[in-house]
Design a protein around this nucleic acid. Structure first.
Lengths: 230, 230
DNA sequence: GTCACTTTCTGACTGTCAGTCATTTTAAGT
DNA sequence: ACTTAAAATGACTGACAGTCAGAAAGTGAC
């Protein structure tokens, strides 16, 4: 049925055209200051049309968020494409770095992530197809991390007394906290902690990873040496 | 000048009365769904009056955020009130637990924190006196953590090869990431990771702290035993 | 090429709500 | 009681998200 196929493709194109326009307008100002009329004009469509493709303004912004999460996951996937040459622990570090680079390269997508997470009106999420995909993508990202940890536990680089899922969640959540800070201080936003201390974000992040790695690295050799000294 | 004092106090009382009402209304719904008219009615004042005390709706919500940050800091202060009996490392852990408890006890304040951090319109922040206080409170919270670390470096419980400020920032940011996840999964919000894995948040958090602690604990004895085994 | 029918698009319109401001009310001072 | 200053009011405005009746474009049959 190339007929319905083509139609579906065209619909998809329109959708993307709208999201493109929305990114342009919203990223140049902010969600609150951007209006649907502006976005419609940028997309060279009428406002009414936007509502044929998106439930409402929030839904449209979540579609942008979804794009961002897709992009981030593709970066993670790339890391894993060359996974053979690295230990699991190295993969974990690389994922962390990938995350940080993403935030620095696409701060606007990260702003969208932050907004998405701050949505307190749960109903608004339930009605959004894009929100479901965002969540799905997050699960997928977490699975990457779980895989990295499992590899690490196999090759002995990661302490296998942790539950991989649990450890992955911890690493993910804490890394997100770090990146959120990077993001905040990257603009004139909020308390400029990093300006106060004369420490670059990359140094900070490196230390963070070291801290984590130190905590999760396999303790086997150390344990042996500990015992042997007693 | 007890005259101006009293006036100032009354003004402060009005202000609090409005914030009380705003909390009641906004917490029961959400920021978007709450209207200024409702808040005014709840406060038994007219809408116009709200604007004598707050720049705009966002500013009012930031005032709530500020309250929350004040409350959180008071909890941190309590931890330090009994600091003598604990090592620096223990204090760090206790601060983490305090944070987690706060999120569980006052999820609405944490929602406000999340919103505050997601504000992408920087101008809106610049105009808010409350925003400045929020930032100030954050700095203060960070100082608590720095002090805990310094104590730890003194008593030998914390690895002193780190820069205290830097380490404090890392711990804070990553802990925030964890608490944000706790918060999200505490409601029907977003991907219910924690439901998937049959792991309680408190267990997860405990492991997180262990991981951090493991990484930042003083390595001196270990290093000695490592050397002695070679 | 035209008619019938469906799908897509339009933009004027509506309702809601944040924020304003001329006017009133209350308080304080003399 | 009168004056002046400060605080509070609520009707009003402007802006904007979201709607919907009707126009336009596309499709296919004859």
């Amino acid at each position: 049925m190339s007929k319905e196929d083509r139609k579906a493709r065209e619909k998809e194109r329109r959708r993307n055209q709208i999201i493109d326009a929305a990114e342009l307008v919203i990223f140049s100002k902010s969600l609150e200051q951007a209006t649907m009329d502006e976005i419609a004009e940028e997309a060279e469509l009428s406002k009414g049309t936007l509502y044929l493709y998106f439930e409402n303004k929030t839904d449209l912004y979540i579609a942008i968020t979804q794009r961002g999460s897709e992009l981030l996951n593709s970066k993670f996937a790339k890391v894993f494409a060359g996974a053979h040459d690295y230990t699991g622990l190295e993969l974990v570090k690389m994922m962390g770095e990938t995350y940080l680079n993403f935030v620095e390269e696409y701060p606007n997508y990260f702003t969208a992530f932050m907004y998405y997470e701050s949505i307190s009106d749960v109903e608004a999420l339930k009605n959004s197809e894009y929100a479901k995909q965002c969540d799905q993508n997050r699960r997928e990202a977490l699975n990457f991390m779980i895989r990295a940890l499992q590899i690490g536990m196999q090759d002995g680089s990661v302490d296998d007394s942790y539950e991989p899922k649990e450890l992955a969640t911890i690493i993910f959540a804490s890394t997100r906290g770090l990146t959120a800070m990077t993001h905040a201080s990257g603009r004139g936003h909020h308390f400029e902690l990093l300006d106060d201390m004369k420490v670059g974000m990359s140094t900070l992040f490196e230390n963070f990873l070291n801290l984590l790695v130190e905590g999760m690295a396999s303790k086997k050799e150390l344990k042996i040496s500990e015992n042997s000294s007693k």
